[in-house]
Design a protein around this nucleic acid. Structure first.
Lengths: 217, 217
DNA sequence: AATTAATTTCAACAAACGTTGAAAGTCAAC
DNA sequence: GTTGACTTTCAACGTTTGTTGAAATTAATT
């Protein structure tokens, strides 16, 4: 049967996913051809269609693969910060931290696969064509749990304000992980897009302050 | 000839730009063919190449056309809020307002051309392929003037913090104007992506609070 | 070893792609 | 009404595109 325990044949399927992940991240869905994916992965052209049906199936598989892992890690971080918090539940800062920190924890420095994945998600998130449907499908069930926790931390918040605040967080987050290099040029090298730790340490208080200003009444 | 409606007096060159703008906004550079642009504009396929050289030239022309207008409007808004401010210069809120308000002022409700343009910019901004170079080219000279004004309003700010704060602003802004419809689904209709006025009124205090938290020392 | 199932390769399809040279059309100025 | 510059169309070029049926190879099961 298929994926029982053998390794060598699973390798090719994963090599295709890795190659597609890197290429989609750089050039988007329509900027990548099945032939380039096959060439980059070192496999035959037809193999991607065999494993994933068609190009769109390959795209979905790339997005799904790490979404599940990220969602689990984020959920664990949320549960942990709830457990560590006192009676009134975690603070805004702690909740936002639980949402952001897993992205760094996933070996961002070493594992270029995750880096490519976040670049791809950034592109999808801001895309009219994919943004609404795909992000909702892969991430919103978990995002709702974070927003529920924020409702406890900000009990007097207007729900509409809360959703807009998350939206701003989402935009700041995805652009930062898109790695376009724009901040390097704008700042003449003072701020470096490679410095994800520095970005993370600034994003948490920045976003938390925004939440409090709008929702802490 | 009297304006009978479909046969407009608008030049073919502008019809091509309008059609390309709408299509690039929805599907990105590689998701649009020259044939689709020609069909949508109601002109011959070869005409786009004649006017703009090639596909990339058309893309650049679309981006440049409104960038110049937006930059002028933003610069005027910045000068006005400087003039209206007292001795110490405008506040953080006033500066951010001068950056955001022109996007609403450009007939966002009526003029779908501007809406398409902002969707396109959102996509470009988060794109690894285009984000760094194109956004820098078209917008950063003006952005630097806004950051200079922010340096006056936040005299003790670390420059790196300031650039990161602008980066977060840029991400929140472009995602909001990308109109992916995600916030509608996430909030079950409580927050509407069509409500640009509501988004604008929330974004200014949200972002200003973030700036102050990191840069007001 | 024989048989069945899963994987990988090969070759080719028809459709769509960006670009371009040359012909045809338009318009203003003389 | 002829000239000349600019605009628009036509037709076609050589590539590249996603997909697929059939053959070949490898792995698993009997």
């Amino acid at each position: 049967m298929a994926d029982g325990g053998s390794n060598s044949k699973v390798k090719r399927k994963d090599r295709i996913l890795d190659a597609a992940e890197a290429l989609f991240a750089k050039h988007g869905f329509d900027g990548v051809s099945m032939r380039k994916v096959a060439e980059e992965a070192g496999v035959d052209l037809a193999l991607s269609s065999y494993h994933f049906g068609n190009k769109r199936g390959l795209f979905d598989a790339v997005l799904m693969r790490r979404a599940e892992v990220l969602n689990e890690t984020r959920l664990a971080a949320l549960e942990r910060c709830k457990a560590e918090a006192g009676e009134g539940g975690p603070t805004v800062e702690a909740i936002i931290n639980a949402f952001l920190e897993p992205m760094l924890a996933h070996g961002y420095q070493e594992d270029e696969g995750w880096r490519h994945y976040f670049e791809l998600v950034a592109q999808v998130n801001s895309s009219f064509e994919w943004g609404g449907q795909l992000m909702t499908k892969y991430f919103d069930p978990l995002v709702r749990k974070f927003i529920d926790a924020l409702k406890v931390a900000l009990p007097n918040a207007d729900p509409a304000d809360l959703y807009w605040c998350y939206h701003f967080l989402s935009g700041a987050l995805t652009l930062t992980f898109a790695h376009t290099g724009r901040i390097d040029q704008l700042s003449d090298g003072i701020a470096k897009s490679e410095d994800m730790v520095g970005a993370y340490e600034r994003m948490v208080p920045f976003v938390a302050a925004g939440f409090r200003r709008l929702c802490d009444k």
